[in-house]
């Protein structure tokens, strides 16, 4: 229930190109603030990347610090990080030796993004479908069942769902592989994608149901009924588009979350995505890796915010794009 309708208030005659330019330029300070906050937060957290359970000798740590530039004043490290960032360089990983953060993300992101995109697409189509059916049967059994099942789907943690699905379809029925990853084998996608898509599907179904019930009570839907149009036309042509606006608002965070990978799903299913880097990086004080992941997530979120605003403007012609 955390979607708040974005207030898009920009001029009618504003050309799309100019609008996009405004939005992209406006995102730069936001992103910079996010990078800055993250940089200093992680640096002020106690312990550093080379503090292990078994302490390294002090001179080794000092050498490592020097090698990674951690011995310089913090503000110098900050400016040099920003300089590298401006050249598209996320810096070397502290924990994955011999890998740069750019390489890690470049290798893992396609896996996470592919799975996430498929999951969100299924969640969108399935959730909207289920929500519409529930709304049209408002107050009847189908509706109650949808609400009940959606709460369960939102409530079951992925670390329960994925092993349970693996147990059922992999170990008991031998239909699907439990773990392992071959990007060309569709069967490998089924369980992780199912686990990823179920919560957003349930959430989208709830959002669609609620807004659809409201739209079906609106005066213009009554007009459409009075015109003698068949239910199919009324739902698909008149009611669905306005009912999708809350769903569109929810999409921005959902896409950013899902496409940057799920630690739980990728760890349990053994997928080479980027889902674990954020948590691992923060736990290990892998400063550059954490920052890289934060930037990927935030950029995706901001970009999706823009896409969603355009989507909403397309869904409702009364909304004007203003910069």
């Amino acid at each position: 229930m955390s979607t708040v309708r974005p207030v898009v208030t920009l001029g009618r005659r504003m050309p799309l190109i100019r609008y996009l330019l405004f939005r992209v330029l406006g995102a730069i300070p936001t992103l910079l603030a996010i990078v800055t906050i993250s940089f200093f937060l992680i640096r002020f957290a106690p312990a550093g990347p080379f503090d292990r359970a078994r302490a390294l000798p002090a001179d080794v740590v000092a050498n490592l610090d020097a090698a990674y530039g951690l011995d310089r004043p913090l503000w110098q490290q900050y400016t040099s990080y920003l300089r590298d960032l401006a050249h598209g360089d996320f810096g070397p990983s502290f924990r994955y030796k011999d890998f740069s953060v750019t390489e890690l993300i470049r290798e893992g992101f396609p896996v996470s993004a592919t799975l996430g995109a498929i999951a969100i697409a299924i969640a969108l189509v399935g959730g909207v479908g289920v929500g519409v059916v529930a709304a049209l049967n408002h107050g009847r059994f189908v509706d109650h069942a949808t609400i009940g099942l959606s709460v369960v789907a939102i409530a079951v943690p992925s670390f329960v769902l994925l092993p349970a699905l693996g147990l059922l379809f992999g170990i008991e029925l031998h239909w699907l592989p439990v773990a392992g990853w071959d990007p060309t084998s569709i069967r490998d996608y089924v369980l992780p994608v199912t686990t990823l898509c179920l919560p957003p599907l349930a959430y989208i179904a709830r959002l669609t149901r609620a807004s659809m019930i409201e739209v079906m009570r609106s005066a213009y839907v009554r007009t459409a009924f009075a015109k003698g149009l068949p239910l199919r036309t009324i739902v698909l042509k008149h009611a669905l588009r306005p009912a999708l606006i809350p769903v569109a608002s929810y999409l921005a965070p959902a896409v950013a979350m899902t496409m940057t990978g799920s630690l739980v799903v990728e760890t349990i299913a053994g997928l080479p995505g980027i889902g674990r880097y954020l948590v691992q990086g923060a736990l290990n004080r892998d400063y550059t890796l954490v920052l890289g992941m934060v930037i990927v997530y935030s950029t995706l979120l901001i970009a999706m915010g823009l896409v969603v605003d355009l989507l909403i403007a397309a869904l409702d012609p009364r909304i004007r794009l203003e910069a």
């Binding site: 936001t30 603030a33 992680i42 948590v279 923060a282 934060v294 935030s298």
Partner: peptide, 14 residues
């Protein structure tokens, strides 16, 4: 808006 751009889990781990 800026705080919402940061992943929650990042804060929580810190």
């Amino acid at each position: 808006e800026i705080l919402a751009g940061l992943p929650l889990i990042f804060f929580v781990i810190l």
